[in-house]
């Protein structure tokens, strides 16, 4: 039995096991901290920064910051909401995201977050980058236009599949996802059953030939905003 810590998020008392991050403790308690790169079961990465919270007034990423006894966490406050809206917008204008003809629409965490934050169109200038699509593999494709560099596939392939098919190359705005081969995904040992294929929050790493199997209107975030599934844990407990 590990030690337990108690702390508060926006005044709500939350319990954490020793070694848990703020976001893990919050999830368990039914407090939703918006996030993109974080995913339960994967090592924390801390790249998207959307889960930034204030701990005793100091900004930290809730996914990489360990929970500590007595910490006072601010999460759903207007200053942070504004930063999160800006970060979400940044991710949209940095890449080429066309929700209306993306197979991920409705299941996309980036799109769902934008709706949760009331963003219907970005206000920042688009970068319109030229990005490459890798459709060399018979079952899987990588569309870098939609990649948000969250490293979920990097981590899942390395830690869950034991393959390490993906990594990043380049730096700054030129940073992109790359495959462990001279050039093509087809030359890696990735397989359709790999866990890496189940973790992409956007439509960047996709299975071929599954277009619109689930109709729009019946998808994950079509009726309830993203995060509701976590918040349900708390309201359920209270009722």
């Amino acid at each position: 039995m590990g030690k337990k810590y108690t702390f508060t998020i926006d005044g709500v008392s939350v319990e954490a096991e020793a070694g848990q991050s703020i976001i893990e403790a919050a999830d368990a308690a039914g407090v939703y901290i918006p996030r993109l790169c974080h995913r339960p079961g994967l090592q924390a990465f801390g790249s998207c920064r959307i889960c930034t919270v204030l701990v005793n007034g100091r900004p930290v990423a809730a996914c990489t910051e360990p929970a500590v006894e007595g910490m006072i966490v601010q999460n759903d406050v207007e200053t942070l909401r504004e930063f999160r809206r800006t970060l979400i917008e940044m991710l949209f204008v940095e890449g080429n995201h066309f929700c209306m003809f993306c197979e991920k629409s409705g299941n996309c965490e980036l799109q769902a977050l934008a709706y949760r934050f009331g963003i219907t169109a970005p206000t920042l200038p688009y970068a319109n980058p030229k990005r490459e699509i890798d459709a060399s593999h018979p079952d899987i494709f990588v569309d870098r236009n939609r990649c948000i560099l969250c490293a979920r596939c990097v981590r899942a392939s390395r830690d869950l599949d034991g393959k390490a098919v993906f990594d990043f190359v380049g730096r700054g705005p030129d940073k992109t996802i790359a495959v462990n081969a001279e050039a093509r995904l087809a030359d890696t040992d990735i397989d359709i059953t790999d866990e890496a294929l189940n973790v992409c929050p956007v439509g960047a790493l996709m299975r071929k030939r599954v277009g619109y199997a689930v109709p729009i209107g019946q998808r994950l975030y079509d009726h309830e905003p993203i995060g509701s599934e976590i918040e349900a844990r708390r309201s359920g407990a209270e009722e």
Binding site: S47, C48, M90, G172
Partner: peptide, 22 residues
Amino acid sequence: FEEESCGYCTPCRVGNVLLKTY
């Protein structure tokens, strides 16, 4: 800064480009 950002996190990777654009 646009050139020297490592590109790991969103605000730095995108923010520098945006500020330069403005």
